[in-house]
Design a binder for these strands. Structure first.
Lengths: 205, 205
DNA sequence: GCTAAAATAGGAACACGTTCCAGTTTGCCG
DNA sequence: CGGCAAACTGGAACGTGTTCCTATTTTAGC
């Protein structure tokens, strides 16, 4: 099982393959999101995804070696979109804490507007084992990047080690809160509060 | 489906049933722990648990309605034992932060000494949905109780709302760290550091 | 354009969580 | 003790994630 390298780009880590392959990959992820959005984790059935993406089951498994890989990859794509959208307009808030809370609440609200999808993606994320480490790590990086950007909105280059640590801790709390919400242990308001508490405790300057 | 109430104890929430039932329950949980300890989440197969506990498959499902319930119940029992063991000897450390770190690292070390078991229990915990809310909540309470006790080892009665909040945030970080370790994204040292960072940030008095 | 290699389609087969059922045993009440 | 309801056994059966196989189609190199 060697690593395939496409001829066009030797610099990017991702090998997106031919146009047909990109298209299949997109169709598969679209189908995944659609099914997840409609019925959550359980509704993302591999046969259903394959059929909806107009792809054979074996092909689906060639692109994504497991249901968890599939869902985490979908999460990654969604997260990249969110992150890009956030980058557009400036972040409101005078203090660091306020800005971080703004960003997190906005993101959380976005997720809560599609609960089934969020449930599917979050459960996959939390259930992932070491074989999905690469994708998970990528998502984690996106999250801390999002948070440090909220802390220093003006392209400040003073991101200290402690800042990154704080961002990671906040990310951890956010994840736990999300899991609590997804699994029905807390409601939306409590989730928001949980994040707010953590941020205020960590960013009380 | 009515609530069954045993004749002997009307005050406790848990109805432990007859001695035979308690015995079966114990055998099942023992089998679960043994299998998890040996092969992790995947090795805890319902047929295998039933066989090892010398119980029919249907009986297993009568006691625990799903694999997740089973594993979370096992986690609960293990956690109660840990918590009891911790209660015995006093907690070392002069500052609040030191004591909390001591407790968490000791617990973490205990879990890391049986990685497969920890993997099984943690994954079940993170995958649980709202039908397991009661058990999950119980575990969460145990964790915060453990942490607040570490913060005020002398039976201090001054546990403020903020203390509980801090304990919860630390618990969240600990869980995230555990998930990271279980899924192979971080090693034992990094896990310990992650907790230490969070505690020091939150308890810097 | 031809050919070998890779990718895909279509679908059978297997594993394990879960459900269900018929028959048997156990526990309890009179 | 006799009888009845609940619990238990043993095992079949079903759904869905995953694997595997063969025939067909697409792609890449000459």
């Amino acid at each position: 099982m060697g690593v395939r390298v496409s001829s066009a780009n030797s610099l990017t880590v991702e090998d997106l393959g031919s146009a047909a392959q990109r298209d299949r990959r997109k169709r598969i992820l679209d189908a995944t999101i659609a099914l997840a959005s409609q019925g959550g984790f359980d509704a993302v059935q591999m046969r259903a995804v394959a059929e909806r993406a107009d792809v054979a089951l074996g092909t689906l498994y060639r692109y994504f070696p497991s249901k968890i890989h599939l869902l985490v990859s979908a999460l990654q794509r969604e997260f990249e979109r969110t992150e890009l959208a956030l980058r557009d307009r400036p972040i409101e808030g005078d203090t660091t804490a306020e800005r971080v809370i703004t960003v997190l609440k906005r993101t959380t609200r976005g997720m809560q507007s599609d609960p089934k999808l969020t449930e599917a993606l979050t459960r996959a994320f939390m259930f992932a084992d070491s074989s999905v480490a690469a994708e998970i790590h990528q998502v984690g990086m996106l999250l801390t990047a999002m948070l440090t950007r909220a802390m220093y909105p003006t392209g400040h280059d003073e991101v200290t080690e402690e800042d990154v640590q704080v961002a990671r801790v906040i990310g951890d709390v956010w994840l736990s809160a999300l899991v609590g919400w997804v699994t029905g242990r807390t409601n939306a308001a409590e989730t928001g509060q949980q994040i707010e508490v953590a941020v205020k405790l960590l960013l009380r300057d």
